[in-house]
Design a protein around this nucleic acid. Sequence first.
DNA 1: TGACAAACGTCAATGTATTGACGTACCATA
DNA 2: TATGGTACGTCAATACATTGACGTTTGTCA
Lengths: 170, 170
Amino acid sequence: MAQPTSPPPIELVPDNEDPVRMALANRVFFRLYQCANLLHKTGSRALEADGLTTQQWAVLGALSRPEAAEGMTVNELARYLMVSRQNLSGVLRRMEANGHLAGTADERDKRARRITMTPWGREVWERRALPRIHGYYGRAVDGFTEDDLTHTLHYLLELLDNMTAIDAQP
Amino acid sequence: MAQPTSPPPIELVPDNEDPVRMALANRVFFRLYQCANLLHKTGSRALEADGLTTQQWAVLGALSRPEAAEGMTVNELARYLMVSRQNLSGVLRRMEANGHLAGTADERDKRARRITMTPWGREVWERRALPRIHGYYGRAVDGFTEDDLTHTLHYLLELLDNMTAIDAQP
DNA sequence: TGACAAACGTCAATGTATTGACGTACCATA
DNA sequence: TATGGTACGTCAATACATTGACGTTTGTCA
């Protein structure tokens, strides 16, 4: 027997008002906020003997990749690290002053500056920083299986995707 | 038939040198670093019309809890948010100047200052900020099921635990 | 009780992060 | 080939974040 058509189910509570979801999201973002603070604090402390901060660690990590063998421009680095180029400008100035980095004018595009690691910067990175970073990682992911790490990475990438969309379309 | 006892398996590569683990940890921390930057950027932008930053949002969120009905001291807030009290001192000064917060001398302990939300601060928090924050959460956790959120929270708490241990024992 | 360590909050110095503004250089199109 | 739009990098102002140092208050233990 044919049923009379009934209206489609109405979502009484829109997604962004679902209290359970909101409470969970709130806890996630609060912990993400704490993680961010603690990452910068403990990361910088782990490398303070080498005169590096967490941000400088990120810069050296980016420039040490084989893909960056020719160096990177300020803008490329800023996009890669997801910070503003204005901010990076200051970080790079300090790192050039420290002798870790060198900037040379780009031949093709005279507006651009190519940033590369100096031999001393590479030495510091490979011989001093990397061993400490691996020690740091070892403690920071203590108790994580490889599966845990993979899942954590996946969720961070999802959050990053969503926040990138928010950033692009405020 | 009895086997001769053989030596226990030797872990050739200590945990913090396992290259697969290190590579995974590196990707996790790089994404965490990007998440941190993007959280502060998009969070502050979401509330800029109310004159709030991500940090001020965290402070109001802490003070709006029923447990904080009597207010919180600077130190309690700093521990709760996992930032230094020196840093918080400046944030609170700006928020008192904005009229969102008020500080009163603690009766019991004359060294301490109890921070509370002003009626205006509560109004801004409840009527203006919270709706925007829920909109932000809705977009930021788009595609996450409740299970996903629970798992994400779990992994962030694990990372937080490990980093707290590093912080305490450098 | 009197002295001394420890905790509370702030000041100062430094580094990182944002947006807005600006000069220089590239480039596409009229 | 001019000319306007856009991209590159930096300067300036402001807000966060750290550590180190300091004056005030508290509380404990000789």
